[in-house]
């Protein structure tokens, strides 16, 4: 790639930073140049986010239909999976998975809910009362 060919497309890095790209200068030697973004990789990132948001919407419906607990929804909202959530709250993975069941969720102690709420950065009530 030549320095003049470094793409300067609009991207989500706007207002945060430009990124460094290695490319050849006029003299045929390598140099660094700055790029505001490249549409090709923006498409990949956008589509990853569309998938994430789609899954979050599914999770919301699951809570609404009573098939999943709010913990499942907020885990998705924080881009976590069971393993990451388990390491943040300090429980075993199977226990976290059990807490996805609405019937189990109803019986969870407040002290346990507190841990989840603090990881999700919400109040205990917001967690308990989330209806999807």
């Amino acid at each position: 790639m030549k320095k003049g060919e470094i793409p300067q497309d609009k991207s989500t890095l706007e207002n945060f930073t430009d990124e460094v790209i290695y490319a050849k200068g006029e003299d045929g030697k390598y140099d660094t140049g700055l790029s505001t973004g490249w549409s090709v990789k923006s498409e990949a990132l956008d589509s990853a986010w569309e998938d994430i948001n789609g899954e979050l919407e599914e999770a919301r419906k699951d809570v609404m239909n009573g098939t999943k607990s709010p913990i499942f929804y907020f885990m998705k909202k924080e881009l976590m999976d069971e393993a990451i959530l388990a390491s943040y709250v300090g429980f075993m993975k199977f226990r976290v998975k059990r807490h996805f069941k609405p019937s189990v969720f109803k019986r969870i102690k407040n002290s346990t809910l507190e841990k989840y709420a603090s990881v999700f950065n919400i109040s205990i009530d917001e967690l308990k009362l989330f209806k999807g």
């Binding site: 790639m1 470094i6 890095l13 990124e19 460094v20 790209i21 290695y22 490319a23 390598y30 660094t32 790029s35 490249w38 090709v40 990789k41 498409e43 990949a44 990132l45 589509s47 990853a48 998938d51």
Partner: peptide, 23 residues
């Protein structure tokens, strides 16, 4: 498409310097 998107991001995202670190 999701699989391909993953390759694109690992290859071109911020940090690679472009072209999957080849440049």
């Amino acid at each position: 498409g999701q699989y391909l998107g993953q390759i694109i991001r690992m290859q071109e995202e911020i940090g690679t310097g472009g072209g999957g670190f080849r440049f």
